[in-house]
């Protein structure tokens, strides 16, 4: 609820909005942070989410939403700077440290986060979780990827089809 340090243009005091998770938990958060979500941005610009109303988010449970908001609050100041060309190296390093820590999570949480990031269209978070999954599979063989991501084993038919497919892709393997 701290007033913005320097007049960033929008409002004098930070405007708050309320988000309601699928299990009916209410989260009060600065509009600037919630606006990182493209999905919410328009509603918020229209003045929604204030007062007793709140914006219901039927696809996001409270555990995931609190995680998502943690990300938004941390990234909102940098986003307000528009890609932050003025951000110092220290600030960037701090955000990077936060990001690494942030996605150091269980796969089921990661999954919920991926879904939430896409439903809410939070560009930075989408990239962050995609990078996380990519890091999990980087340098691994297809079988290891299957195991890492916990895919069911292929049926013999599927495997046969993939074998044929693989021979076709010699140029990527040789």
């Amino acid at each position: 609820m701290a007033a913005p340090e320097s007049g960033d243009g929008n409002n004098g005091a930070a405007r708050m909005v309320t988000l309601i998770s699928s299990d009916n938990t209410r989260f009060e958060v600065e509009a600037a942070a919630a606006s990182l979500s493209q999905t919410l941005q328009l509603t918020i610009l229209d003045g929604g989410g204030g007062g007793g109303d709140g914006i219901p988010l039927p696809n996001v449970d409270s555990a995931t939403l609190s995680k998502v908001l943690e990300y938004c609050i941390k990234h909102a100041p940098a986003a307000a700077n528009g890609g932050a060309p003025n951000a110092t190296a220290v600030d960037r390093a701090e955000l990077e440290r936060f990001d690494n820590e942030f996605v150091n999570i269980d796969q089921s949480v990661l999954y919920s986060l991926i879904m939430a990031a896409h439903n809410l269209e939070i560009e930075g978070l989408q990239s962050l979780v995609a990078k996380k999954v990519a890091d999990m599979i980087k340098g691994k063989s297809p079988m290891e990827i299957r195991r890492t991501l916990g895919f069911p084993d292929p049926t013999p038919e599927e495997q046969a089809e993939m074998n044929a497919h693989m021979l076709e892709y010699g140029w990527a393997y040789e």
């Binding site: 990519a134 980087k138 990827i145 299957r146 895919f151 292929p154 497919h165 693989m166 892709y169 990527a172």
Partner: peptide
């Protein structure tokens, strides 16, 4: 899209 190209292609046999 966060993998290098060769590995990205190689994932074609991860699953159908």
């Amino acid at each position: 899209s966060h993998l290098d190209a060769r590995q990205a292609v190689q994932t074609c046999v991860v699953s159908l």
